[in-house]
């Protein structure tokens, strides 16, 4: 490997990553002017939409071709959701869902 070139690759990655994060602030957040109403509306309605998409994103590799490729993830999500609706305690829900998932995956139970 070439150290100088590797450094350049890392630098370009860092700058490009920052670029994606800074865009909305450059477009709408620099001046003292008010954020456009359509954008502040989006800011309010996007989080639930994005969170739903992130749940899907984090289990994106499941496949319905074989039950071993989706049951663990779906059960993990359902356990997390049910425990959360029951106790409303974030850490308990996450520990329960993750615990069940780990047992299912490691023992290849299903």
């Amino acid at each position: 490997m070439n150290i100088r070139y590797s450094l350049l690759i890392v630098l370009v990655t860092a700058i490009s990553t920052l670029a994606t994060r800074v865009v909305p602030f450059l477009l709408f957040g620099t001046a003292k002017q008010e954020v456009p109403r359509a954008i502040s509306y989006l800011g309010r309605v996007l989080p639930p939409a994005v969170m739903a998409a992130l749940v899907v994103y984090s289990v994106k590799h499941i496949s319905f071709l074989d039950h071993t490729l989706w049951m663990n993830e779906i059960i993990g999500v359902i356990v997390t959701a049910v425990v959360h609706l029951w106790r409303r305690n974030t850490l308990v829900s996450i520990a329960a869902g993750t615990g069940i998932y780990m047992v299912l995956v490691q023992t290849a139970l299903l």
Binding site: M51, V55, S58, V77, T80, A81, T90, S93, I94, G97
Partner: peptide
């Protein structure tokens, strides 16, 4: 899977 569970809870 804690990440998936986190997104689920916040959702």
């Amino acid at each position: 899977f804690a990440m998936t569970a986190l997104f689920t809870v916040i959702f």
